[in-house]
Design a binder for these strands. Structure first.
Length: 702
RNA sequence: CGUGGGGUGGAGCAAUUGGUAGCUCGUCGGGCUCAUAACCCGAAGGUUGCAGGUUCAAGUCCUGUCCCCACCA
């Protein structure tokens, strides 16, 4: 295990085509922030780099739909997401955008370098092109009939109904999702990155980390490696993105594919950060000094981009290096997903709670706590309003907030707002809390990315603190032994201080308020000293006798009334009802085949071409026509429920398809000796099957 | 079909390499009154999806089976 002296934390770049929701926060940004804040408080050198992913097709489509430019789209969502993150206390050291000049240059540098080494391959292939919108269509923008199950709405990459993986070329009757037009095949040339070239290196890389990476990360990655790595296109035909930095004609109209572009943003933004710090070269000490630990926080959907593709890009750069080599990620703590009220968050269905929206209603720390306690570390978890209310009221307000307040209030009313005594180390160590052990547990929790543990460790202290205060009963004690009461309250106050440190990564704003309530002026962050851990303050009492608290106490967490979350339930129900309706409509459109029958079964049906020789309405039966059918030399009478669609007169002379061996049945006192075939169109309109041909009367249909 | 992840007291979750099945909430009973009707103590409640197997010992390992969920921007 190498000893790192610095840490570079990156978070997946949110796509600037929509607002981030709680699922993103839970899987990526909050855990990263907890980790980074923890390390900062420990006095370590750590930076958190993130930013907006601002290229790609969907953005251009949004722009077109709204009649604005792609730049307008990304401007909007970049600002919106950065604002939401800031409100949530996600403390980026730098939050960049892939549209920046520095990033474009970085990406081009990488392209150039890999092109120079002749690693890329150029391939020409036929892709669907939508002439109406003038775009080449990526797989998921093509829809058509699934060749396997006939689902009419199969996607170009996969049929949702039968799960088959498809190529767009396999679809029957392909349509562009952008315009409904039938796309044409056109030749186009693209640069490909030969991932397979790095197969062995990548396998070694993963093997090296099989013990310290999460099993889900290793598994996802190995699944890919087992299948063998294919060439991957790194360019696309598009006019929004980073142009291929070559002068040749073939580079015209090509941009770098987002998967190549976006991950390099981590590097670009670190450069921008360094420049902003006034030390333009400092980014190198994070990317190119092996003493720096690189950690990518992502969701599980992003694993292979960070364990295979990005490393492969860096390996390509590092090969026969002319410049300094890049570090590969030391860890990739990919989260599972957080669901919302039992279902997946879904941007397209608008089934989501957006971060900015949430923070307009409830304080950031309540969200941070709830989400930290439900961090999807090993498996998918669930965010529910009920759970959020319970945790906020029962844990944050009742357990934590109330403890702080009762300690401070008691001091203010009985001890003039001053810490009444010094606390000895013995007393501090006899609270039933093993501080040394707590410190180690906190360290294991944060360093191992176990954020639920980290948050509950803090709350455990609050619970122990309540226990201590209730059991020592200073309100009784003060009547007989003021000094003894003072000692217990001094302990309580020091517990408050300990809580403000221990919970700081999870509840930065709240802890700052505790800090202030305890009579400290500055910011907690201002106490940070490089190389010295603030958490060691847990080991000894910090508040000394005579320390003056701020005069007034405050309620740290307002309880969430049922009425405050009731509208959220209403909203969900409305959304679900809407989704259900849509899904019901889908089911209706879906073609459900009857169970398979054998050929022999089919042969049992005697289908004949019959000619209508006479027709008349049936009395008291508005839907029935009585037909006399000629089948060769035989005449049969059939009652057909077509009176509302065909008149008796127009039926005469028609050829129809008849089931000739159907058991007889009597309706309205008339015998029906078979049935004729018809198909029901929209609105229940019937169309008779009319076989056309010469001399086919009486012939069997098969 | 395939691959991956799951099924633990009413709910949500924990259980390092197999070794007394824990926690939070809820329920019930009690205590306290400093505090946000809060806090503290106690109790009830699980044959760990089902069926086999390995073992001195299985939630944990093996086999089979049933059910749930996710699956490439």
């Amino acid at each position: 295990m190498p000893q790192f002296s610095r840490t570079l934390v990156t978070t997946a770049l949110p796509y600037a085509n929509g607002p981030v929701h709680l699922g993103h926060l839970a899987g990526v940004y909050l855990p990263a922030d907890l980790y980074v804040r923890y390390k900062r408080l420990k006095g370590e050198d750590v930076i958190h780099i993130g930013g907006s992913d601002e290229h790609g097709v969907p953005i251009t489509i949004t722009a077109e739909k709204e009649g604005i430019s792609p730049q307008d789209v990304v401007d909007r969502y970049h600002r919106m997401n950065l604002d939401a993150f800031t409100k949530c206390g996600i403390s980026f050291d730098y939050y960049g955008r892939t549209t920046s000049a520095v990033h474009h240059q970085t990406a081009k540098d990488f392209f150039f370098e890999i092109e120079r080494k002749e690693i890329f391959q150029q391939k020409t292939e036929k892709l669907f092109f939508d002439a109406q919108t003038n775009r080449f269509l990526s797989d998921r923008y093509v829809t058509g009939i699934c060749p396997i199950c006939n689902n009419p709405e199969a996607n170009g990459d996969q049929c949702e109904q039968c799960g088959t993986h498809l190529s767009p070329l396999e679809l029957l009757n392909p349509k562009s999702k952008l315009s409904d037009a039938t796309p044409e095949l056109r030749e186009t040339m693209h640069w490909y990155f030969p991932l397979g070239r790095f197969q062995q290196q990548l396998e070694n890389y993963v093997n090296l980390h099989e013990d310290d990476w999460r099993s889900n990360v290793v598994n996802y990655t190995r699944t890919w490696l087992k299948q063998g790595l294919n060439d991957r296109a790194i360019t696309r035909d598009l006019n929004w993105g980073i142009t291929v930095p070559l002068d040749s004609d073939e580079a015209v109209g090509k941009v770098l594919y987002v998967w190549f572009d976006a991950v390099l943003g981590y590097i670009s933004f670190t450069k921008e950060w360094a420049t902003q710090q006034g030390e333009a070269d400092r980014w190198k000490s994070y990317w190119q000094d092996p003493a720096c630990r690189l950690v990518h926080f992502i969701g599980k959907d992003n694993v292979v981009f960070h364990t295979l593709m990005f490393p492969a890009i860096l390996m390509a750069w590092n090969e026969a290096p002319q410049a300094d080599c890049y570090n590969l990620a030391d860890n990739v703590p990919a989260s599972e997903f957080m669901n919302f009220e039992g279902r997946k968050f879904s941007k397209s269905r608008n089934y989501a709670v957006y971060l900015g929206e949430f923070l307009e209603k409830f304080p950031a720390d309540t969200l941070r706590y709830s989400i930290a306690m439900n961090y999807p570390e090993n498996k998918d978890t669930d965010f529910s309003w009920q759970d959020f209310q319970n945790r906020t009221n029962g844990e944050l307000a009742d357990t934590l907030g109330n403890f702080i307040k009762r300690s401070v209030d008691f001091t203010n009313t009985r001890f003039d707002g001053m810490v009444p005594a010094d606390v000895t180390t013995d007393e501090w160590n006899n609270l039933g809390i093993d501080w040394q052990e707590t410190l180690e547990q906190l360290d294991r929790a944060y360093e191992g990315f176990h954020f639920r543990d980290a948050a509950s460790l803090g709350m455990d202290i609050a619970r122990a603190a309540n226990r201590f205060l209730t059991v020592s009963e200073p309100w009784k004690l003060i009547k007989v032994d003021r000094e003894a009461a003072g000692r217990t309250i001094a302990l309580s106050l020091n517990l408050c201080h300990a809580l403000s440190i221990a919970l700081y990564p999870v509840l930065p704003e709240t802890c700052q308020r505790i800090h202030a309530m305890l009579g400290f002026d500055g910011r907690i962050e201002d106490l940070i000293v490089r190389g010295k851990s603030l958490f060691t303050e847990l080991l000894t009492p910090v508040l000394l006798q005579g320390h003056k608290l701020r005069e007034n106490s405050e309620i740290l967490f307002t309880k969430i009334e049922d009425s405050a979350i009731a509208p959220e339930f209403a909203k969900i129900n409305a959304l679900l009802a809407e989704a259900e309706k849509r899904e019901a409509a889908m089911v209706e459109n879906r073609i459900e085949f009857k169970p398979v029958i054998s050929f022999d079964d089919f042969q049992k049906i005697d289908l004949r071409v019959a000619t209508v020789i006479a027709a008349e309405p049936v009395k008291k039966a508005s839907k029935l026509l009585k037909l006399q059918l000629q089948i060769g030399s035989v005449t049969k009478q059939v009652l057909a429920g077509i009176a509302q669609h065909y008149s008796a007169e127009e039926m005469v002379g028609k050829n129809v398809v008849m089931v000739a061996n159907l058991a007889e049945r009597t309706m309205r006192n008339e015998v029906s000796q078979g049935m004729i075939l018809a198909v029901e169109g929209a609105d229940g309109k019937l169309f008779i099957i009319e076989p056309a041909g010469d001399e086919i009367n009486g012939k069997q249909i098969q």
